[in-house]
Structures are given as C-alpha cells and as structure tokens.
C-alpha cells in the first residue's frame, strides 16, 4: 500500500505494509540513527518527531504517519545544528545509543513550554540513559533552551 508523509522536510511516498513498525521502515531507508532499544515504548532510543511531538517509533505503525510531518535525527541534525552543538559541547553522551532519541525529544521541547531544570527532567523522563547519570544531558538541553 502506498503511504505519503513528509520525512525530514521532504514529501515521501512509500509502498509498505501500513502495519509495519515505523522504526523498521525508517531504519530500512538507511536512516539508522533511529535506534531499536527496548521495543516496548519505554527507553526512548527510537524516538522520532511526529507533528512536533516525540513518538516511540518502535510502537508506532507506519500507517498512522500518513500526511504527518515526520523528523528523524538525520533531518534534525541538519535543521537544528545548534542543538547538536549543545550535546557535543556538553558531552551529553557516552556510548551514544540513546543520544539520537534524547536529541529528538529535546528538539520537541520548544513547543512544550518547558524551561526549568525540573520541567526538563520530567519532559525527558521517557528517554533512558544507562551511562551518563543524565547530568550532561540535562545541561545540554538547558544550554539549548537558554540560547533559543
């Protein structure tokens, strides 16, 4: 079945089973920055942005993306280089497997009215990191929001 949506700012038509997972379809397009972690919508490694909101692509059927505005880390890295810089300068990562998901979640904060450290922590609670202890990730998001 043909489905149409905007992917990283470009109109995209795919011939796929609408019941496929968005995660698998996106990774199948060589956009492997979106990672498979827990597979049950808990860890956040597979986060994509759908109409401005963070969504776990591992529990999202690709058919639900029809006509939506979808962004992955690859597109956001080009669109929001200052956010990438903020994570790089703060070293908001160690192993890096959760990092794209953290950044996609952070990229969606602008529209959510989040600014204090506590609000950031609540907003980012859906993105697990096992390495860093979270401090550098929170700093990266704080820096990003302070600049914007």
């Amino acid at each position: 079945m043909k489905i149409n949506f905007s992917l990283n700012g470009k109109g995209t038509e795919l011939d796929v089973d609408p019941m496929s997972l968005a995660l698998d379809v996106i990774r199948g397009l060589s956009l492997t920055g979106t990672k498979e972690g827990c597979g049950v919508g808990v860890c956040g490694a597979c986060t994509i942005m759908v109409n401005g909101a963070p969504v776990s692509s591992c529990i999202c059927l690709v058919g639900t993306l029809v006509d939506k505005d979808v962004w992955t880390i690859e597109g956001l890295a080009e669109k929001m280089p200052e956010l990438i810089d903020s994570f790089v300068e703060n070293e908001g990562m160690q192993c890096g497997i959760c990092t794209p998901g953290q950044i996609v979640a952070a990229a969606s904060i602008d529209s959510a009215g989040v600014s204090t450290s506590e609000e950031i922590r609540k907003y980012m609670a859906g993105n697990l990191c096992r390495c860093t202890g979270y401090q550098t990730i929170v700093s990266a998001v704080e820096d990003h929001l302070a600049v914007n």
């Binding site: 920055g33 992955t72 990438i84 994570f87 790089v88 908001g92 990562m93 890096g96 990092t99 794209p100």
Partner: peptide, 8 residues
C-alpha cells in the same frame, strides 16, 4: 565520538 553519535 561526540559529533558522530549526536547526529546518528
């Protein structure tokens, strides 16, 4: 490895 990891 920061940039490679942050950009996916």
């Amino acid at each position: 490895d920061a940039v490679a990891k942050a950009t996916g």
